[in-house]
Nucleic acid binder design. Structure first.
Length: 873
DNA sequence: GCTATCACG
DNA sequence: ACGTACGTGATAGCT
């Protein structure tokens, strides 16, 4: 049996914790957030991995053998803030109480201590080493016996890297991470690398040649003249960078495993926690190391816990007994334990509850075959959380299953997608919280118990809000449609995508060089901070706007400086291509499912405050379209095998049509009834010119005003958008309201109703609370008032397309077509179809989308189709 | 985790 | 005088 030896990078973890948590203070005013965060993480690590021994390593001082080698090593780092530094001694005190040894050394970093200890442990044999760190560099230490637990974001999102996981991510073995750093450098440590070589290029070189030395040994075989030049010019720098990135594994540190056991000192630890007001740290510690004196008490709680603990049902007999209880339960509930990703999601286990009694059943057991079919039994009326996932694993659409999460979102959309524990704390605050230290299946069982109790409470609330129909007839039917859209995915032409990624990569390398030349030195163009310094301090361009942290360098500012200095145009171009490459080309490529060759986005039904959907991983609702360069991305989305076209059906001016309906403004209703150009008509009214004299400039302005109305207009906002004075903007608005009094009274009425009631609703009864509308703070109150104006419009549009989606889905199915809905982009549906079904599917879409509601104005759609998404526009 | 930026409706 | 357009998500940098 091997010993599990855990080594923590104290410095990097404390730093991560510091930035992950708000600045908490002890009762006496000392900052404690970093130590609190470290404590949470430590508890989690010990509970999950149960290490036999442990050491925490610290950086000692800034000066190390690396700064000897290269004076600028980490030279870009500012001094750590005082709020952080003050917590370092606190952590030592904390570790002394906990009984965990820690190490630090002159001239060496924590990494080197970790590297050395892990090597000694490997040599000694019989150890499984786990390194916990927020520093990516440690990944070079990964081996058969050494794994790294890397805190990806903050401190709670931890990924375990073993050899396979590393290879999967980087494509080569861990030790070559230092070669990668040698080539690409590391901006956070100020390691230079080879200028102009980033991760992608470096990886390519390493995959082709091996180690850094091999790249230079075969320098003649490197493709690309520029790249070869850069590599040759910077050979010494690359070699130095590799040295800097290499963790020293023979540091003069003793390996004394007999001293690495954890020896908790209760008295000392409690005194520490009490002094700094760290209650959760104390509780967590007590749970892990029950003290002798509290034995009786512990036994007592253990007994009550036992009663709540879910039974793990495996055998046939127990299953039959529990099945009977479920059939008799008034609110039977389940929580699925899912694994994998759509469209390969699997159900691994179920937490089940009668409301009184909870149980776990694992897929593949004998009990599973008895209990799972109950979920499809139409005589039971189930409640779950996350109904969409249940559909993904094959759950029947016919079964009676309610989604408590969806109901809670409708009752208060501001909570978004709340998990069971959040819902409990909101709706059943006096019920006991879900225990944190159980495994996933046990939590699912306990969660099912809570879900069963939550449903009647939340659904009652929904009825009180008169939102039953919204839930039953709009949102719940949509769940199945979204599940199917996600499973369908959309085909992406991977070859064309990566060819484009490569071409854009080359373009970026060129732009990068041009920018460096114009700036007279290399810098990180992606860093707004560094860019601001280059433009405004070094090149002396006139600074326009400031952000909280420095100069603003956004597109608006840069556009105004376009002709002041040639670098500006290059930067704008660099930004444009960088955005396309990183957000779209690279990341969508990574999300293509290797089996289906398609991307399967997630449509989030419980995120927005207004009732819209959102899309993530990847977001397919913000694929570029406005600019030519970006629109190319759409060409890579194509009909998949068995299909001929992508077809897009989008509502024309849906939000302004809803405004016309809700306000009953004569001008608006008239214009839409007669199918006029609404912006031209608005221009004609507001600027007092006949329709035929409306210039494109006047139309543009009127369009901006119409947008403004939908967003909850202010003269300032409009003046910014149009680049006119605030006074002029106010004039436009005044004239607009005079000509469209119906709109004016609708907006006033909506805002005053919001003040009275504290919330607004859509045409279909969706609700959004606006507590800030009563704020004494002008800014906050004004924001709430604009939300009051915008939400009924944006939300009603969301309602309508949701109804249309369900209707179109049904109609396509009933007609027996193979065409299918793939995407929703707020006012647009994207469908995959065939030559034969082309006209039928258009007819169905018109029927579903245009006729789904009857407003005072028509609701026409535009349809386009083509061989890719760019053509279907 | 927060900020700046930029992609969409 | 206040100080803002509405709704999203992804990426990169940062301390």
């Amino acid at each position: 049996m091997s010993q599990r030896f855990m080594i923590l990078d104290g410095s990097s973890l404390l730093f991560r914790a510091f930035y992950a948590l708000p600045l908490l203070t002890s009762p006496t005013g000392e900052y404690t957030n970093a130590v609190v965060g470290f404590s949470n993480m430590l508890q989690k690590m010990i509970a999950e991995y149960k290490p036999d021994c442990m050491v925490v390593a610290f950086d000692k001082s800034r000066h190390t053998f690396r700064t000897e080698m290269f004076a600028d090593y980490k030279g870009n780092r500012d001094k750590a803030p005082e709020e952080f530094s003050a917590q370092v001694p606190l952590l030592r005190e904390f570790l002394e109480g906990w009984g965990i040894p820690f190490l630090e050394m002159d001239n060496y970093e924590a990494d080197d201590i970790i590297g050395t200890l892990s090597k000694r442990a490997e040599e000694a044999g019989g150890y499984e080493v786990l390194i916990v760190t927020g520093d990516r560099d440690a990944l070079q230490l990964v081996s058969k016996d050494v794994n790294v637990l890397y805190t990806r974001k903050g401190i709670s999102d931890i990924v375990r890297y073993d050899e396979a996981a590393f290879k999967e991510k980087y494509g080569f073995e861990p030790i070559r991470l230092i070669d990668l750093k040698g080539l690409m450098g590391d901006s956070s440590d100020n390691i230079p690398g080879v200028p102009g070589v980033g991760e992608k290029t470096a990886t390519k070189l390493l995959l082709q040649f091996g180690f850094l030395e091999d790249v230079y040994a075969h320098i003649d075989e490197v493709s690309g003249k520029k790249l070869k030049e850069k590599l040759t010019e910077n050979q010494a720098q690359a070699e130095l960078s590799k040295k800097l990135a290499t963790i020293e594994r023979n540091a003069p540190v003793e390996f004394t495993p007999e001293e690495y056991a954890i020896t908790p000192d209760h008295e000392r630890f409690f005194a520490f926690c009490d002094k700094y007001g760290m209650r959760s740290a104390r509780q967590g510690f007590e749970k892990l190391y029950p003290a002798q004196g509290t034995l009786l008490l512990e036994l007592g709680t253990e007994e009550t816990e036992q009663k709540h603990k879910a039974a793990r049902i495996a055998g046939r007999n127990e299953a039959e007994v529990f099945a009977d209880k479920l059939r008799k339960a008034s609110v039977p509930a389940f929580c699925g334990v899912y694994e994998g990703k759509v469209p390969h999601l699997k159900l691994r286990a179920l937490g089940l509850s009668t409301g009184d009694e909870n149980a776990v059943v694992e897929s593949g057991s004998e009990a599973w075959d008895i209990l799972y079919p109950l979920l499809e039994d139409a005589s039971l009326h189930w409640v779950t959380i996350d109904l969409k996932s249940f559909y993904h694993v094959g759950g029947s659409r016919e079964a009676h299953v309610e989604d408590v999460q969806l109901a809670a979102y409708l009752a208060d959309p501001s909570i978004g997608t709340a998990d069971v524990e959040q819902l409990r704390s909101i709706w059943l605050p006096s019920a006991p919280a879900i225990s944190a230290d159980e495994d996933e299946t046990e939590k699912a069982a306990e969660g099912a118990g809570i879900v069963s109790k939550l449903w009647p409470v939340i659904f009652e609330k929904l009825k009180g809000y008169d939102m039953e129909k919204l839930y039953n007839d709009m949102e719940k039917p949509l769940v199945a449609v979204l599940a199917e859209m996600e499973e369908n995915g959309i085909y992406v032409n991977r070859d064309r995508l990566s060819a484009q990624a490569e071409a854009v990569g080359k373009k970026l390398l060129d732009l990068e060089q041009e920018i460096y030349t114009l700036a007279k030195h290399p810098f990180n163009i992606n860093s707004p901070k560094q860019l601001g310094e280059v433009l405004f301090d070094e090149l002396g361009l006139p600074a326009q706007k400031k952000t909280k942290t420095g100069y603003s360098t956004n597109a608006e500012v840069l556009n105004s400086l376009r002709y002041v200095h040639p670098i500006v145009e290059k930067i704008l171009e660099y930004r444009l291509w960088m955005k396309l490459k990183s957000t779209y080309l690279d990341s969508i490529g990574e999300l293509i499912d290797s089996e289906t060759k398609r991307v399967h986005t997630t449509f989030n039904q419980m995120v927005t405050a207004t009732g819209r959907l959102s899309s993530s991983d990847p977001n397919l609702q913000n694929i570029p379209v406005r600019k030519e360069e970006g629109r190319i991305i759409r060409e890579f989305f194509e009909p998949g095998e068995g299909y001929d076209y992508l077809l897009s059906a989008d509502y024309s001016q849906i939000e302004l049509r809803i405004l016309a309906h809700l306000s009953q403004d004569k001008n608006f209703v008239n214009a839409f009834t007669h199918d006029e150009d609404i912006h031209a008509r608005t221009a004609s009214e507001v600027f007092g010119v006949p329709m035929e004299d409306v210039t494109s400039e006047l139309r543009r302005r009127a369009k901006a005003v119409n947008f403004g109305i939908v967003y909850g207009i202010s003269d300032y906002g409009l003046s910014q958008d149009l680049g006119i004075s605030r006074k002029d903007a106010a004039g436009y608005i005044k004239s607009y309201f005079e000509k469209c009094p119906g709109v004016k009274s609708f907006i006033d009425g909506t805002v005053s109703e919001a003040h009275e009631k504290g919330y607004v609703t859509t045409l279909f009864g969706r609700r959004r609370d606006l507590p800030q509308i009563h704020s004494k703070n002008f800014t906050q109150r004004s924001l709430a008032e604009r939300m009051a104006m915008n939400t009924p419009i944006q939300g009603t549009a969301a309602d309508i397309i949701k109804l249309a989606m369900a209707a179109a889905y049904r109609a396509i199915k009933d007609a027996g077509l193979k065409s299918r809905i793939l995407l929703q982009v707020h006012d647009e549906l994207v469908i995959e179809t065939t030559e034969e079904e082309l006209s039928k599917v258009q007819e169905i879409l018109r029927g579903a989308m245009e006729k789904i509601v009857s407003l005072s104005v028509p609701l026409p759609i535009d349809i386009h189709y083509g061989k890719n998404w760019a053509e279907a526009k």
